[in-house]
Write a protein that binds this DNA or RNA. Structure first.
Length: 529
RNA sequence: GGGUUCGUAGCUCAGCCAGGUAGAGUACCGGACUUUUAAUCCGGCUGUCCGGGGUCCGAAUCCCCGCGAACCCGCCA
């Protein structure tokens, strides 16, 4: 092997991918004055954090291309002309009457956007905005309304027989041997999928269809019986996914698109259509695994309890999402809120490497860690390091201090010498860790059995704590009152920790009680008496 | 039926995608401190890197064959 390892760009998989893309474009001899990358975003259900991955990673490739000196642009394409196929869990049953209609023509059940589709894509775009991802938003509805794909649609339709056979051969789906690959929106009832296209009038560029009964998944969907003719250059209707990507790639001159393995077959077919029917070399691809929830099941866009970026950002910074998505692309991954503490601390570690606070003996690792840090900062890393406090430590402190949290936790951090002074950055992390502590480390009131002696001891303690006089040596006092009544101090301490922290263990009890407030503790104890 | 991913310390996992001394947290053991529980600090222990073969000076990492687990596709988009 070579003496020195060849490092491409900033040493991450993103650079390697961008390099491969450039090599390919060169060998194809295509113009590279503007390299467009695309990411798709579904608009049929609530977008989960994995849906951001498609756009975030494509944006990473765009950054890498720019880093290599090329102009690049990310198109975020919303599939909002797709029909609603089933009601996502947790959404109102009233949506049932809209099944089959394009999501852009269904009213927003939440009432805050112009349509169902726009509501869903807005959640995703909002997430991207919060991460600082820049993109050009392109709606499927506008694409078709404006006839941007009309040439590709025409070419695909006149080759529909050949395509239908190829699809059957490649992925075993036989329907396009019978059906023309175009879904008109029924002019009468406004539904896709029921309007079955059966003939393409080549000279007029029109599709003849009949709105008939069909099934979506296992659910039957009634057609209205309308017979119509749709103009592919302006009437509403769309290509099925098996050929639509290819049309888009060609029309928008897309050179890169990542995809999840669930649409692997569609991409395979589209690559073929792109190259062989549209005569447009398919974009460079990268395939990624789906994000799974902690049970190992796919996070489905159409299920309830979706882990959205908005939920994530309650507990973690935007950087943790970027880190999650940029650290690697391979591998099936289970992801959940409980990954946030590790990601918070991992980001800090990268920052320490970047600023030279941590030395690594492996030079390649240093370069790659710095590169990852730069991508997580969207190639615009800060000039100075922000103060940081270990997230897990903060969770512990936030569990103890639930009221008046920020000043009390800050005070403790100053005492520990963890920070030199309070700052908005530290306060932000305290808030995030506090949310985590409140939502995921919920103290359950422990049932404690108290015997007579325990009651006496605790009663005595309540009196001391409620007194206006500040106890001098609380730690010792507690120890003494237990001993006086013949109770094991050990048992008393355990009891107190259970009452205060819902735990068998905890920090030194005297200072802890003083920090939280002795009268507050007194009333907590009283509840058990 | 087709495909993808995963398998590393008792446990949870990182490291693998660009080969170079096998790691972290936790658990456990010991010590310091503590009139006490704990926290904290210091030190220590733990490996068939799923099995087998190949490439290589060198493999947890790359390739092939198995075994086990999970997921995706095989409606539709």
């Amino acid at each position: 092997m070579e003496e020195e390892q060849q490092i491409i760009g900033r040493g991450t998989w993103i650079d390697k991918l961008a390099d491969e893309l450039l090599q390919r474009e060169k060998s194809l001899g295509r113009k590279t004055d503007l390299i467009r990358v695309e990411s798709g975003l579904g608009a049929s259900g609530i977008p989960h954090i994995g849906s951001l991955g498609d756009a975030v990673r494509a944006y990473g490739v765009k950054l890498a291309l720019e880093n290599f000196g090329y102009k690049s642009e990310l198109i975020a394409y919303s599939d909002d002309l797709d029909g609603l196929r089933k009601i996502p869990e947790g959404l109102p049953e009233s949506l049932k009457e809209h099944i089959g209609k394009p999501v852009s023509f269904i009213p927003d059940p939440f009432g805050c956007h112009d349509s169902y589709g726009l509501h869903m894509s807005s959640i995703l775009l909002d997430g991207l905005d919060k991460l600082g991802i820049k993109y050009k938003f392109q709606r499927g509805v506008d694409t078709y309304k404006n006839g941007l794909l009309k040439d590709q649609i025409h070419t695909i339709l006149i080759n529909s027989k050949k395509i239908g056979e190829k699809i059957a051969e490649m992925v075993g789906q036989e329907k396009y041997q019978e059906v023309v690959p175009y879904f008109p929106v029924c002019a009468s009832c406004g539904r896709l999928y029921t309007a079955i296209a059966y003939e393409y009038l080549v000279d007029e560029k029109k599709i003849k269809y009949k709105c008939s009964d069909t099934t979506i998944g296992s659910n039957p969907l009634k057609g209205c019986g309308h017979e119509g003719i749709a103009d592919i250059t302006k009437d509403l209707g769309k290509l099925p996914w098996k050929v639509e990507f290819a049309a888009r790639w060609n029309a928008f001159d897309i050179r890169f698109e990542a995809y999840g393995k669930d649409i692997m077959d569609s991409v395979k077919v589209n690559d073929w259509v792109s190259e062989n029917i549209l005569n447009f070399p398919a974009p460079t691809h990268v395939k990624y695994e789906m994000f799974l929830d902690k049970g190992g099941k796919k996070i489905s866009k159409s299920l309830g309890n979706v882990l959205t970026s908005q939920t994530w950002l309650r507990y973690g910074t935007p950087k943790t999402i970027l880190l999650l998505l940029y650290k690697r692309i391979t591998g099936a991954r289970e992801v959940g809120i409980d990954d946030i503490p590790a990601l918070m601390d991992e980001y800090n570690e990268l920052e320490n490497i970047y600023f030279g606070k941590i030395k690594l003996d492996n030079e390649t690792k240093v370069v790659r860690s710095k590169g990852l840090y730069e991508y997580v900062n969207l190639l615009n890393p800060p000039k100075v390091q922000k103060p940081y406090v270990n997230y897990r430590l903060l969770i512990q402190l936030c569990k103890i201090f639930r009221e008046n949290r920020i000043p009390l936790v800050t005070k403790k951090l100053l005492e520990y010498g963890t920070i030199k002074e309070s700052s908005p950055d530290v306060e932000e992390i305290i808030t995030l860790a506090g949310n985590y502590a409140d939502d995921y480390d919920i103290p359950t009131k422990v049932e404690i059995e108290l015997d007579d002696i325990s009651r006496q001891v605790l009663g005595h303690l309540v009196n001391i704590l409620s007194s206006d006089q500040e106890p001098t040596d609380l730690q010792n006092t507690i120890y003494q009152i237990a001993k006086d009544k013949g109770m094991q101090p050990k048992d008393l301490f355990k009891m107190l920790y259970q009452i205060i922290l819902a735990s068998d263990r905890g920090p030194k009890i005297g200072p802890l009680i003083m920090d939280i407030g002795r009268k507050k503790i007194a009333s907590s104890i009283s509840e058990y008496l």
